[in-house]
Design a protein around this nucleic acid. Structure first.
Length: 483
RNA sequence: CGGGGCGUAGCGCAGUCCGGUAGCGCACCUGCUUUGGGAGCAGGAUGUCGGAGGUUCGAAUCCUCUCGCCCCGACCA
């Protein structure tokens, strides 16, 4: 690179550094030593005077349940039509966070990410026989050539077609492919905001194995991955024996979060309430059957699967509650591979239909479910792992030069350290700022005001506990940059 | 898809029964004063009353049709 260009760049980065952006070392970037994701993040607007955060003071009349109300009030989403939403900056950050945790745990479990289309040809669904079965929930579209298309409600057919065309031998197995993509199901009655939308973001994956034993291992891997995924979000999602529904198949578990606003009735052993579902770290390549048996030994079943007359749990030990379904896994063998001709040549030369499973996580639904599980009267309380920003920084008196200097300085240092901090630098009354920050629910708040600045301290408030502590600016910085 | 409810300013609502120049609170704009839990004063802007048709001298209001949204149920990640 010519010499004079880096100097021009360095002037730019000097100016950027003065505004709180990190100074980029081009050499370091070229050597791959600087995380480009972090650079992009550091460029993002995080000042409330510039950020698009349309807060609502009152509850919109169309929103009835708490997560829907709070998502609208906190400027996370706006409704476009029934069950269809636009995601605004704050909401999109959470959606991406949730998606990223799902992605990391899928990758860890050995699944590989792909991206399939939202629009699918009807032909594929005629092959599996589901085109007529699926009914009015499938949004059918006709293109300009009068070809029948559809907006995918799920992707079993699509993935089966991809795999059958690409995989010939049992040596190519196992495979597990996932994507995170928008789906559409034309629900008769969408409700509960993003938790029961018509358009929704879902992670779905599909496992392909040679025989039932290998397929069960794939199922167990996903079972484990799901426990880990939800635990990382601070959610207790109980695996429950479930009906296989229109996907079909032999074995199925739903992962349910207990919440008053859950849409279905679920039953489980009382001991689940005290069970801590850890983000278990188990070797995915080991025999997972003992693990699976352990986590399915305590009774838990959805309404359709629960039969009071032969329930193994005595009534006094049984809990009946409402559940939000955030994940669903299926083992269905050759249900799709057989009619669609997805076969491999086995070890002894026979053609064998692939043994398949499919696994879903409602990514957009989880955002609502997370709020159902984490809020109080003042607003949302984000778990750290999914919070749109780690910190909120409030400058109570932007017009005061000392407050401004202290807040700008802290903001710049936090940004430089890669901390995601939403900075309320607006000229507004203190009460309004406190209320806004509580509403959007960032895990911790740093509050800078004339009182503290005079004493050389800022206040640090934890959103969940409400605990407040006065810290020096340096101590506050260390607290959130040293972890 | 059955049953119910609601569409009036960005949000929350009154006005509709009983037709007569479209209102209130918050938010917004301007100015001044304020500033540690949704500030005060003064001034200002904002509407095809969901849409179409009809009745009438005159319709947010009455009649007909229609669209949208919400709730309960059935259904669903």
């Amino acid at each position: 690179m010519p010499r004079r260009i880096p100097s021009a760049v360095s002037r730019v980065t000097d100016a950027a550094a003065a505004r709180g952006f990190p100074r980029f070392d081009l050499g370091q970037i070229r050597r791959g030593g600087l995380d480009c994701g972090r650079i992009a993040n550091c460029r993002a607007i995080m000042r409330l005077t510039q950020y698009f955060l349309p807060l609502l003071r009152e509850n919109p009349s169309e929103a009835q349940i708490v997560s829907h109300r709070l998502m609208l009030r906190a400027g996370m989403v706006r409704q476009s039509s029934a069950g269809i939403y636009s995601w605004l900056p704050l909401g999109l950050r959470v959606l991406n966070r949730v998606g990223q945790i799902v992605r990391e745990e899928q990758d860890r479990a050995g699944a590989q990410e792909i991206l399939m289309p939202t629009i699918q040809p009807a032909e594929l669904w005629r092959e599996s026989g589901r085109y007529d079965d699926y009914g009015k929930e499938m949004l059918r579209i006709r293109d300009r050539h009068e070809r029948d298309m559809l907006y995918g409600p799920t992707n079993e057919e699509q993935i089966t077609a991809i795999v059958r065309d690409a995989i010939r031998s049992y040596r190519d197995l196992p495979k597990n492919l996932y994507h995170i993509q928008w789906k559409f199901r034309d629900e008769v009655r969408p409700r509960f905001g993003v938790m029961r939308g018509r358009e929704f973001l879902m992670k779905d994956n599909y496992s392909f194995d040679l025989d039932a034993a290998a397929a069960k291992h794939a199922y167990n891997k996903m079972f484990l991955a799901y426990l880990r995924t939800f635990a990382r979000m601070g959610l207790k999602a109980i695996p429950m024996r479930a009906d296989t529904g229109p996907i079909g198949g032999d074995l199925s578990h739903e992962f349910q979060i207990l919440a008053e606003t859950g849409e279905s009735e679920v039953f489980c052993d009382r001991r689940w309430l005290d069970t801590d579902i850890l983000a278990a770290d188990v070797d995915y390549d080991s025999d997972l059957e003992p693990f699976f048996r352990h986590w399915t030994s305590l009774y838990a079943a959805t309404d359709e699967m629960h039969k009071p007359e032969n329930c193994p749990v005595p009534p006094e030990q049984l809990v009946s509650a409402r559940g939000i379904e955030v994940g669903h896994i299926f083992y269905f063998g050759a249900k799709y591979s057989k009619p669609m001709g997805a076969v491999v040549t086995g070890p002894n030369g026979d053609e064998v239909p692939l043994e398949m499973g499919s696994y879903g996580i409602g990514v957009s639904r989880l955002v609502g479910a997370l709020i159902e599980a984490n809020h109080d009267d003042a607003g949302i309380i984000w778990p750290d792992s999914v919070a749109p920003f780690r910190l909120g920084l409030i400058n109570l008196r932007p017009a005061d030069a000392k407050c401004r200097a202290a807040a700008d300085d802290l903001y710049a240092k936090l940004r430089r350290a890669g901390v995601e901090v939403l900075y309320d630098d607006r000229d507004d009354s203190p009460g309004a700022k406190f209320a806004a920050m509580d509403l959007i629910g960032l895990p911790d708040q740093l509050i800078i005001g004339p009182r503290g600045v005079a004493a050389g301290t800022i206040e640090c408030k934890n959103r969940r506990s409400g605990a407040r502590v006065d810290l020096s600016l340096d101590a506050a910085l260390t607290r959130f940059t040293s972890a």
